[in-house]
Amino acid sequence: MPWPFDREYMQLALIAGLVVGACAPLVGTFLVQRRMSLMGDGIGHLAFAGVAGGLLVGTSPTWAALSVATLGALLVEQLRRRSGAQGDVALAVMFYGGIAAGVVLMGRSGAGSASVLSYLFGSILTVERSEVALVAALGLVIVVVVAVTHRGLFAMAVDEEWARVAGLPVAMLDTVFAVLTAVTVVTAMRVVGVLLVAALMVLPVAAAQVSAGSQRAILLVSSGIGMIAVVVGLGVARWLGLAPGGTIVLVAVAIFLAVTVIGWSRSPRHEPEHGNAGHAHLHGGHGH
């Protein structure tokens, strides 16, 4: 393969990165639509506690992170369901609890700060073949689950009560989605790290929403933007000798900013051209 993917470690990083870049925005789309953009971040905090716990008891940090993140996501889902407006605070409690538990467990396990940093900021340059295979397998699971559930998840994002009246298994889909989020966070953890996982889930979606219209287009375009961010980010990191995880996210930020600015210059005021003049646009204008 041509530079910058001429070396094996770069190729492995590229494959793992592409899988994550494609999958994270698929799940992120529904996080954004359900106004839960920070959920990925919170689950990341919990995954960090899982990593620390795994290092302490000597099991694989990845599996420990996966189980803690999944349990956490399910618990958050329950809290959100039960406590309504208070749900916000409940989430904050869990997430800060997660990172605090992570710090305490990490201190207890006596693991060096280097291993902590590799989970906080990712270590995509050291992924091995077996890990790439695992990432690819998890990625496939994510794609399949999204393909099956996206209609239901979309209907729930629009109006959860309507979805319930329409006979959708709302509680089941919520559970599936919580687990899906946890799996995605843990898969992406190795690539961009716990602190930046949510960025890769949310930023491509935010960029896609500026231009793309339909649900299907947003899923596909955001996934594409995620992959572009990974390819360009890895290339730039190789070129300038930068930390790859952070560079990938910076590229995603740059894409979002560019698309947003282009969006502004194209239609400075988002007035609908259709419909009769003089209507009260209760929700008129698309922000900005």
């Binding site: 099956v148 209907a155 994002a157 629009v158 329409a166 219209g213 339909s214």
Partner: peptide, 29 residues
Amino acid sequence: PQRPNLGDGLAATVGDIVSSGRLTRTGWW
């Protein structure tokens, strides 16, 4: 339902919304 409060977060088209109404007949998956 009473008109839901849609934020900017939901970038869906009219077609998306109306199509989702078919889920009562086809099944959500």
